[in-house]
């Protein structure tokens, strides 16, 4: 049961993180539309790293608490 609460908290943080990345990328894209392709690539890499945090949480939660 507790691991689900933990997943929820992790999801909250990761949601904020990915939202901030999207926010920054959108700002940058609207300021410099010619840099969209470069910004998109960097944005996707950053998103992948943030997303990995949640996946690691999921695996650790399953492994340590046994959900």
């Amino acid at each position: 049961m507790y691991n689900f609460i933990g997943y929820g908290i992790a999801m909250l943080g990761v949601g904020i993180g990915i939202g901030l990345i999207g926010f920054g990328a959108m700002n940058g894209m609207s300021r410099q539309p010619e840099a969209i392709s470069k910004l998109q690539v960097a944005m996707l890499i950053a998103m992948a790293f943030v997303e990995l945090v949640f996946l690691l949480t999921l695996f650790l939660g399953k492994g340590l608490i046994g959900g």
Binding site: A48, E51, L52, F54, L55, L56, L58, F59
Partner: peptide, 10 residues
């Protein structure tokens, strides 16, 4: 590990 888990998790 990160490459593995990212793909698997998604």
């Amino acid at each position: 590990l990160s490459l593995t888990l990212r793909l698997f998790g998604n």
